[in-house]
């Protein structure tokens, strides 16, 4: 159908696409509904074997699904924090992974964008966030995407040319417009999260102004596999600090093979915010979001380590101030 309707787009939950259509971010001749595709709503597996999730499973189902109780808790946490209960009952995992990168110069009505001057991402030729930039800096605003990277998930794409499997970090491109390696004729049909014989923990921390409605202005996903009280391998990714989810796995490596304590977690988190490059195109200032990054990495790591997330040592303050 997609090949016979050039320019058409796929719709599942519609919670990201329909507002964009109304604001004329996309001009499409037709929408192709994915909601009748077979197998899109299945969840199968467990922590040992891994879990396969149909792309059409709603965020609400995932937020409360027993298969995501243990090792994959970060995914349930991320889904549970997307927008509102209404959006979670409509929105799907596939849709959330592919949320159109956002920017508060872009997610505006047509008349607003016209008044501001159209931007690169739609109808214009400059980036209003970074005027000299040749590229678009819209922000990856998916809650589930950084978790998919942290859990090393693999996505199955179905298109005209058949099925192909792509690891989560290969699904995204560092560009606010051309943000995915998925081809226009392809749809995500399922997401596989690998199992592990080792004990695994994960956590997702989301920064936003209000505890409902708001997109992340920072997301931190971490996953730790354990070996007798020691971290065997740590993986992590940041959301909403770039045009794609940003891997921080390399920065978490000092945890590997060690028994994390307050000091080690703080030290690792303090360095792991390096790849975060928030710009002034979301709610609240990018300075603050940048400074919050290490605090939230620390909190996510502490939660995954089973210690009080709020009792960490790091602060978003530039220097410690005596109270």
């Amino acid at each position: 159908m997609a090949s016979s309707n050039p320019g058409s787009m796929f719709i599942a939950g519609g919670t990201d696409l329909v507002p964009n259509l109304k604001r004329r971010q996309f001009d499409v001749p037709a929408l192709i509904s994915l909601n009748a595709l077979p197998g899109m709503r299945l969840i199968d597996g467990d922590g040992e074997r891994g879990v396969t999730i149909g792309a059409g499973v709603t965020l609400d189902e995932l937020a409360h699904h027993p298969a995501l109780d243990g090792a994959y808790r970060a995914l349930a946490q991320a889904c549970d924090q997307v927008s509102t209960p209404q959006v979670r009952c409509m929105g799907t995992l596939g849709g959330n992974l592919l949320v159109d990168p956002r920017c508060n110069y872009y997610n505006q009505t047509y008349s607003w964008r016209k008044a501001a001057g159209f931007c690169l991402k739609k109808d214009g030729d400059i980036c209003l966030v970074a005027r000299s930039s040749p590229r678009c800096w819209a922000v990856s605003s998916s809650d589930s995407a950084p978790v998919a990277l942290a859990l090393d998930a693999t996505v199955t794409l179905h298109g005209v040319g058949g099925d192909r499997r792509v690891r989560a970090h290969e699904l995204y491109k560092d560009d606010g417009i051309d943000y995915t390696t998925k081809r226009a004729d392809e749809v995500i049909v399922s997401v596989e999260v690998p199992g592990s014989e080792a004990r695994m923990t994960s956590a997702y921390w989301k920064l936003r102004r209000r505890p409902a409605f708001d997109f992340p202005i920072l997301g931190v996903a971490v996953a730790l596999s354990w070996d007798d009280g020691m971290v065997r391998a740590a993986r992590g990714a940041l959301g909403a600090v770039g045009s794609r989810p940003v891997e921080i796995t390399a920065f978490l490596a000092p945890l590997n093979g060690r028994r994390p304590d307050d000091a080690l977690i703080a030290e690792v988190a303090d360095a792991a915010d390096k790849p975060a490059r928030p710009l002034d195109n979301t709610d609240l200032s990018h300075y603050w979001r940048k400074r919050m990054t290490r605090v939230y990495i620390e909190r996510a790591l502490r939660e995954a380590c089973g210690v009080d997330p709020l009792a960490g040592r790091l602060s978003a303050q530039v220097k410690a101030a005596a109270i």
Binding site: G14, V18, N35, M90
Partner: peptide, 16 residues
């Protein structure tokens, strides 16, 4: 409500 679950009618497409 759609099938008893909270839905946004402003974003739901009737054909679906």
């Amino acid at each position: 409500l759609v099938d008893g679950k909270p839905f946004l009618s402003c974003l739901a497409m009737p054909l679906d």
